[in-house]
Simulated scan of single mutants.
Amino acid sequence: MTIFNLGSINVDYVYRVSHLPGAGETLAAHSLQTGLGGKGANMSVAAARAGSHVAHIGAVGPDGIWARDRLMEYGVDTRHIAQIDVPTGHAIINVDDAGENAITLFSGANQSIAQSAIGAALSAGSVGDILVMQNETNGQEYLAKTGSNLKFRVCYAAAPFDAKAVKSVLPYLDFLILNEVEANQLTRALGVEIGALKVADIIVTLGSKGARWINAGAGVDQHFDALSVTPVDTTGAGDTFTGYVLSGLDRGLSMGQSISLAMRAAALMVTRMGAADVIPDLKEVEAFAGL
């Protein structure tokens, strides 16, 4: 089976700071690290390192060929990543001494993915393949509707949160993943509790408090505890979690097993500085979890 990911590809500029800067504040950084990032790229790398075949659908500019090449080095199928005449997306990430971050995004090529390229990629899929997207690219509604019609398992990671974007894809979703803040925002926007949404499976990530899985049809509302670790950098932890959950499902694990594995992958991830370049592979996660 294949996980198709319509996902962002960014160059990450990570600045280590003593605290996150406030309005009007000029703050000297301790260090600068440049690497591969973007929610889409992070999820693709995580799912590939967890053992799945991942086909990434996206775009980079002439300045981002190295990012596409690095995805391929990390085991991602890059045949559906186009090179276009638009600058590659990038992110400016401030990370403080407690491991918390603040991120500024420039979308660039991520918002210029051709609909024809999306359709061509999905034509290579099969019934039961997994489809995932985030809110960092164009083409989400087309992808969700097309994937649903092709009987893919359609998943949406609702970040960065935008109520309009979620509403446009909600009718086609089989699986929704969002964090606690995003879940509260969606509840306010729709006037409906998360558990009442007509989506088969919903996961709400809760940071250090773990995660919640809801499957209303099966009467499931289950909490999963997080592992206790000392965070160094929380960048990419949620994306790592998502990639590992989807890979677990792709490889035939139950939802509960997939979430438990993903919790361990995310816990290991926050002990590392960086994003896609430092996402742990399956052997590392299993060793870390004592499996």
Rank of each mutant, 00 (worst) to 15 (best):
T88E: 09
A158H: 01
P280Q: 03
N179D: 10
A189G: 08
V220M: 12
G147H: 02
R70Y: 14
A117Y: 00
N94V: 00
S112P: 06
A91F: 12
Y172W: 06
F175Q: 03
N42R: 04
F288V: 04
Y244H: 08
G125W: 02
V192A: 09
Y15W: 03
G125S: 03
V166F: 06
T146I: 04
A41L: 06
G61W: 11
G89M: 10
T271W: 07
F106D: 07
V17E: 07
L173A: 07
A59F: 01
L206D: 00
I194P: 08
S168E: 14
T235P: 07
T88L: 08
P160A: 06
L261Y: 00
I279S: 02
V86S: 05
I118D: 10
A114L: 13
G37P: 13
L253P: 02
S126P: 00
R264W: 07
Q111D: 15
D281L: 05
V76S: 01
I279C: 02
G210M: 05
T235L: 14
G119L: 15
L170N: 03
S112F: 13
G37T: 07
D174Y: 00
T205Q: 05
I65F: 12
T2F: 00
G256P: 11
N42P: 07
E136C: 14
C155G: 12
D239G: 06
A124G: 14
A55Q: 09
V76N: 01
K151T: 10
Y74G: 06
P280F: 08
R68T: 12
A183N: 03
I57W: 00
A262D: 02
N138W: 06
D225E: 14
G38Y: 09
I84A: 06
H19V: 03
S8T: 01
A211D: 05
G256C: 07
P231I: 09
Y15G: 03
Q33W: 15
A67Y: 14
Y142I: 15
S208K: 10
G252D: 03
A46H: 04
F241D: 09
M43N: 05
L131E: 01
V95S: 02
V86H: 11
I3V: 14
N42W: 09
A265E: 07
L27Y: 02
H223K: 13
L6I: 02
Q140I: 06
V169N: 05
L282H: 10
K198P: 15
Y142N: 14
A82W: 02
I84L: 07
V232W: 10
L71N: 05
R212S: 11
S254T: 15
S31E: 12
G75Y: 00
L105M: 14
K209S: 09
L249F: 01
S247W: 00
H223D: 15
G89K: 07
V154Y: 01
M263Q: 11
A28T: 12
I177C: 07
E182G: 10
T235R: 08
L32D: 04
V76F: 00
L20Q: 01
L178Y: 01
R16Y: 12
L178G: 04
K167W: 04
L268R: 09
V132F: 00
T78C: 06
V232L: 10
A109I: 09
D12V: 02
T88C: 06
I3M: 08
D221N: 14
R70F: 13
H223L: 15
A50Q: 10
V204R: 08
L170K: 02
F4G: 09
A28D: 13
R212T: 05
G248T: 06
I194N: 12
